[in-house]
Design a protein around this nucleic acid. Sequence first.
DNA 1: CTGTTAGCGCTTTCAC
DNA 2: GTGAAAGCGCTAACAG
Lengths: 333, 333
Amino acid sequence: MDKQTITIYDVAREASVSMATVSRVVNGNPNVKPTTRKKVLEVIERLDYRPNAVARGLASKKTTTVGVIIPDVTNLYFSSLARGIDDIATMYKYNIILANSDKNEEKEVQVLNTLLAKQVDGVIFMGNKITDELRAEFSRSRTPVVLAGTVDPDEQVGSVNIDYEKATEEATTKLINNGHKKVAFISESHEEPINGMYRLAGYKNALEKASLSYDDDLVVQSEYTYKVGEVVYEQLEKAGATAAVIADDELALGVLNATLDRGVKVPEDFEIITSNNTKLTAMSRPQLTTIKQPLYDIGAVAMRLLTKLMNKEETDEKTITLPYSIGTEGTVK
Amino acid sequence: MDKQTITIYDVAREASVSMATVSRVVNGNPNVKPTTRKKVLEVIERLDYRPNAVARGLASKKTTTVGVIIPDVTNLYFSSLARGIDDIATMYKYNIILANSDKNEEKEVQVLNTLLAKQVDGVIFMGNKITDELRAEFSRSRTPVVLAGTVDPDEQVGSVNIDYEKATEEATTKLINNGHKKVAFISESHEEPINGMYRLAGYKNALEKASLSYDDDLVVQSEYTYKVGEVVYEQLEKAGATAAVIADDELALGVLNATLDRGVKVPEDFEIITSNNTKLTAMSRPQLTTIKQPLYDIGAVAMRLLTKLMNKEETDEKTITLPYSIGTEGTVK
DNA sequence: CTGTTAGCGCTTTCAC
DNA sequence: GTGAAAGCGCTAACAG
């Protein structure tokens, strides 16, 4: 039925050695006489032997694959992180099982469980809020977990982020310094720690430092989609905002275009700073100013951290904060 | 060391049945007395038993995971296909191992091999040209393969695409009908069958039907990046083009912005039709007209086809062509 | 430096 | 309807 699959045993027989020896040469174990190694290698070549990673995984209890939970691959913010993750994973000989969660708590738990059932050596999680259930699953398994672009106030697992509070404060301040008195803040639900705890706090800090009062109408919670740009802009207009810090690039672009479509001049009459530094920010006209998060690096560093955790290496710090700046992209790759 | 992992054997003992029976209830085999099933289920619950998918994979020779080779997840065209793939995969209880290839032939072969070593039940390939080496690997393994958004003239494996030739012809004709005499055609290397064989042919067909002569200067081969838009636009300007069919959305957006930055009116003085229907097309100002490929569906149908192949089901047709249209996106999701 | 021997945790005949 | 037993293909002590 299945194509005659050749096993380590076949190689051993043909090379007149034991399977242990074959295993050794396959795994690069130095304790093999060069002559023997050569002989085995020849047979492997001749028979076109390919080690079965599943069998190896069962025997060694290591699968060299890590699970990656992502809200949506078609979201440039997350796919950029994913790219960093995959590159570093490949560098360390890991593969990635990618699963979309749509930030749906039920799916997240469900997917985490199938990942663990598949014996992944580690998990990288991107999402929102770490629910209690999720946190329980994380600690129930001994599998290391790293959050990328995702924070958990209860810092039990590894994580890589930027300082959202400071970044948002800086962005807001920049707008205020540009003369805006009514700066709006738009993000998804404040239930999410990144928004509710950090970004919002940063926004408030900036207001306070500038002695501006906080106005509820200037704080809008919205889903992160391009198409709601219209609606959001109308709310901002009604509230009299002349500038906005927006937590998502697609949404920011939607607001930008809605603004332009109404003949409002950007940035002269309405100024926007967005937060995710995806390539979209460089593709709009005018270009969007953004909190320049090192997207690829967040993913890459998260994966690197995970490799350390998987190897039980000493790690100085499990909660990593990467630097950011604010500006426009000069060029996109 | 490892957390005391509980196995099927523990469950069997606790439930006073054989592991065969436990296996049966776990796998929903009907040949189990309801009472027994209930008892086993209770023990599973109590012990919090989770079947080890790796062991299952080794014993059953099925991993319920498929490999997905993608040029770059951060490319919206491909990530949209990937989303369709993952959704259908999930629906059929498969997981996806996602690997970026950068369209690099060496990486493609390398990654395919590690995927096969991991005993994936099937492979979905997105890329360019299927090199001979790749084709050899495909047929050497018994693992079913489906190409998504990728054609192989030698139709040995499954594939899902649109009719690139007809679509490009239609796009070109549309531009010609809008009064353009000098329509350019921009794509990546003509070595790629999609470009060299189909799109280019479609472009030529359109010219011919309109009795326009083919002009080499109007045919540009360029990498698919936003930033080369400038350079490409300059070539088009020099060649006197007043319109262009562009094979990639990021590139098209680059050209669009370069055009606008020069004060040229779009579409009045320069008209563009792009080809990939990514959300970028709706986010530009003006919006880009595009060949509206059903991106998500291409991925979804490819995955569905793969499930059939993996189950050795009868399939009417392994080469699937999906419909397209030409226009602008009214709204983006 | 190399071989022997147990498993890894589960599926799958084959009996009963 | 249920159990016993033989692997799946490989790693990892443990000898020698």
